[in-house]
Amino acid sequence: MSKDEHSLPQSAARALKYLVLAGGAFLMVFPFVWMMIASVMTAGEIQMRPPVWLPAQPQFDNYSELARSIPIGRLYFNSLFTSGIIVLGVLLSSSLAGFAFAKYRFPGRELLFYLILATMMIPFFVTLIPVFFIVRQLGWIDTYQGLVVPGLASAYGIFLMRQFMVTVPDELLDAARIDGASEPMIYWRIVIPLVKPALATLGTFTFIGAWNNFLWPLLVLNSRELFTLPLGINSLRSLYADNTNLLMAGTAVAVVPMLLLFVFLQRYFIKGIALTGLKG
């Protein structure tokens, strides 16, 4: 079998490889491109027979019309603000707990850790309604707190941080103690700098999750002033049910800036994601 492969002309095999990759990449990118194209078509061009592939005249007005009917800036602010706080919270809580589980011995440690592991498998829907009730008891329905606080601790995050922190040598911590460092200082000055890649991983992961979250904001938010981007897109679906071009423009506005950010930061994003598969 391997003989056959070698007997194939090397260049043909290479060409095939690039062809497959390019074909796949085309499939990946095309929906985004088509969304952009449709977003500058007229409503008539979208329904044209036979179909047209490009607008005769790009309708950038679609975007100004969109800006008039939905508060894009507000949606972005809400998504950024809430996702940012969730990321900070998860990083802080996970690294603290992960540190304790990895580097301290205390009664109840194993029990608590196994409990946390067990909760990782629970479908989110099991907790959805009760959490809604708790948030209501706290008077946080339709607030930023209600959206953010239930997401501030993550079982997965604690697990991931513990896995990374176990590899930090005890000698380092002991040396710091001899130098008179307090335990919080050890956490902050020694351990945190050492697990920065893991924090980046967890942060990336949490950010994508929080940024794209839909069901929880849908339940907990009522006021349009607090809506996040996915809720904005959801409103567009009914607002522009008959205007596919505007719907595409709205979706593009919600999606493209995030994609650009990703392209700039892709090195960190992808490195972070790749780590989860190895440590998880």
Binding site: A25, M28, I208, P230, I233, T251, A254, M258, L259, I270
Partner: peptide
């Protein structure tokens, strides 16, 4: 290129 859909909201 292959990663772009991963960071896009399922709703979008």
């Amino acid at each position: 290129l292959y990663f772009m859909p991963v960071i896009t909201a399922p709703l979008a």
